[in-house]
Computed example of a mutant assay.
Amino acid sequence: MAVPEFEVHTYNRSSCSGRLRIALNLKNLQADYVYVHLFKGEQRSGNHLQLNPSGTVPVLLHRKEGEEVTFPITQSIAALEYLEEIVPNQVPLLPPLSQPLDHAKVRTLVNIVAIDIQPFSNRSVVKRVTDLGGNAEEWNSGFMMKGLQAYEAVAAKTAGKYSVGDRITLADVCLVPAIWAAEKNSVELEKLPTVMAHLRGDVRVGGSPESALE
């Protein structure tokens, strides 16, 4: 049996890790998964920090045949774009290069999730809010709703069957785990009709939190 080319350091409740698992599944790429338990602080271990100085997940390692892994990819969007660049024709998750405006639409939505939504729900940020005496749940859900409303407004102009047109893109890959997190934080998703209408089941396959170890 062939050894998977990819190794992913992940945690099932990490939305950033969820993006990568979904993309690998959609592209039918096999990976070995190394589970890093964030609630047990395994991301702060010496071994993990040597791999990823940021102390976060996911980390993508690509084991090319006959070569040593020389660079761990420690940011989820960089990892997604890397997969797209090395296997662009295996379920493309970006529009053709001949459609630069559609590229920009996808990347706009990706960045809304990666910059305007996810960082505020990061475990270390939420813990800091709690330590300062704030209401972490209210903080988290408020920023999630604000970001998802921005996604909703943009997607209302770009969506077909999915967030941008009629094919799954990196925007959908990033959106789905954001919705998992929003559901856990009691965000009023019924206020986001475009977002919810375009969360089709085939994006979720293989990527749900339940598909990974606790």
Rank of each mutant, 00 (worst) to 15 (best):
P4C: 09
E5S: 12
E5M: 10
E5Q: 14
E5R: 15
E5P: 00
F6Y: 15
V8W: 03
H9W: 15
H9Y: 12
Y11S: 11
N12D: 05
S14K: 09
S14D: 13
S15V: 02
S15A: 09
C16L: 04
S17F: 03
R19G: 08
R21V: 00
R21W: 04
I22D: 08
I22H: 11
A23D: 04
L24Y: 06
N25M: 12
N25P: 03
K27R: 09
N28R: 15
N28V: 13
N28F: 05
L29Q: 14
D32A: 13
Y35H: 12
Y35W: 15
V36M: 09
L38Q: 04
Q43L: 05
N47R: 10
N47M: 01
H48A: 02
H48Q: 04
L49W: 01
Q50S: 12
Q50M: 09
S54T: 08
V59E: 10
L61W: 03
E65L: 10
E65N: 06
E65A: 11
G66V: 09
G66F: 11
G66T: 14
E67D: 11
E68R: 10
V69E: 05
T70L: 07
F71I: 11
P72Q: 08
P72S: 06
I73R: 07
S76V: 10
I77Y: 07
A78I: 02
L80K: 10
E81R: 08
L83R: 05
E84M: 05
E85L: 10
Q90F: 07
L93K: 11
P96N: 09
Q99N: 11
Q99G: 04
H103A: 05
H103Y: 11
V110G: 05
I112T: 12
V113F: 11
V113W: 02
I115R: 04
D116M: 03
D116G: 08
I117C: 15
S121K: 08
N122T: 14
R123Y: 14
V125C: 07
V125L: 05
K127C: 08
V129P: 13
L132A: 13
N135K: 11
F143E: 03
M145N: 13
K146E: 03
G147L: 01
Q149I: 02
Q149H: 01
Y151V: 02
E152I: 01
V154L: 01
A155E: 07
K157H: 12
K157F: 03
K157G: 02
A159M: 00
K161Q: 13
K161D: 10
S163C: 14
S163R: 03
V164C: 03
V164F: 02
G165N: 04
G165D: 06
D166L: 02
L170P: 01
L170K: 02
D172V: 02
C174L: 14
C174M: 15
V176C: 09
A178F: 13
A182V: 00
A182Q: 05
K184G: 08
N185P: 07
E188A: 11
L189Q: 06
T194W: 00
M196H: 00
A197K: 06
L199N: 04
V205F: 09
G206C: 06
S208Q: 13
A212G: 15
E214M: 05
